[in-house]
Amino acid sequence: MVEEQKAETPEPVLNVVSTSPHAHSGASVQRIMLDVVIALMPALAAAVWFFGWDALRLTLSCVIACVAIEALCRKAMGRDLGIGDLSAVVTGILLAFNLPPALPTWMAVVGCVFAVAIAKQLFGGIGYNPFNPALIGRVALLISFPVAMTKWSEWTIPSPIGIDALSTATPLGLAKTNVMSAGTLPYHFDGGTMLQLLMGDQNGCIGEVSALALFIGGAYMLWRKVISWHTPGCYLGTVAAFSCILWIVNPEKNLPPHFHLLAGGLMLGAIFMATDMVTSPVTRKGMMVFGVGCGVLTMVIRRWGGYPEGVSFAILLMNSITPLINRATAPRVFGHQRKNKEKAS
């Protein structure tokens, strides 16, 4: 809705006139997205380390597909290309990070179509999408191709008996099936297990395995002020507290909090997905509510739901009530009384 500088101005010496302010912080959407891409690099490195060629194949194909689909959609709608803002790149990387390493490329591309064309461009592009595009892509794939989306490679699990075994399930998936069938947990918890999970030597989607790499990326984004601590802090805190309570109540059937924190897509979700600006609240208070809500839903789905992992669904569900959170957590305007005070007086 803004008149850009006209190229064909009759006189070349016209001044630019606009409303105040005439100064700007220099921040730009492109720069923010670039920072997110940079922050994702350690996790990408870890993914390549653990999954090799597959990680690179999925990431590259998703990025290329997302950018291409974005460009195609914009063109079809007769709008500016708008791929320069790098948001499609971020969506591509995040979607790839949410895929199992063995997923065929064409399926990944289908996910990209869901993510960019349906979840984002149909709504008008960046800024208008109510749901996180990458997560929509992942969930759509999970529901469409449940087998392919839960086919993992082999990894060595720390077994309770002391002899390491090979498994083709994710740590959380294994825990879920074991608790359901045998009623016990399949793990032996010691410092080594934790280190293994922290570094990323576990099964899972390519980008979610290494909590440490994700953490480094998160720290970078915090330093660049791309994200604030409110959403991830509250998310992780809630998961820790919730799982701690469950664990204390029944350590036989519930995983300990550090396991919940380090296994599965929690770190990726809390640091990169829940903090997606477009689909999360704008107020600090709202961000905290958002984080807590994500945490509770994640734990409910992980503990009682049908899926071993609840991060994607939890964030999508919280995305859906983001407008309501914004409305409910609108700050008290300077010079206005708080509503209940008004009533009291």
Binding site: V2, S18, G124, G125, I126, G127, M277, V278, T283
Partner: peptide, 12 residues
């Protein structure tokens, strides 16, 4: 810095 017509990305 010129103003532009980019949509809001709700960064807050």
């Amino acid at each position: 810095r010129t103003f532009s017509s980019m949509p809001c990305i709700s960064c807050g």
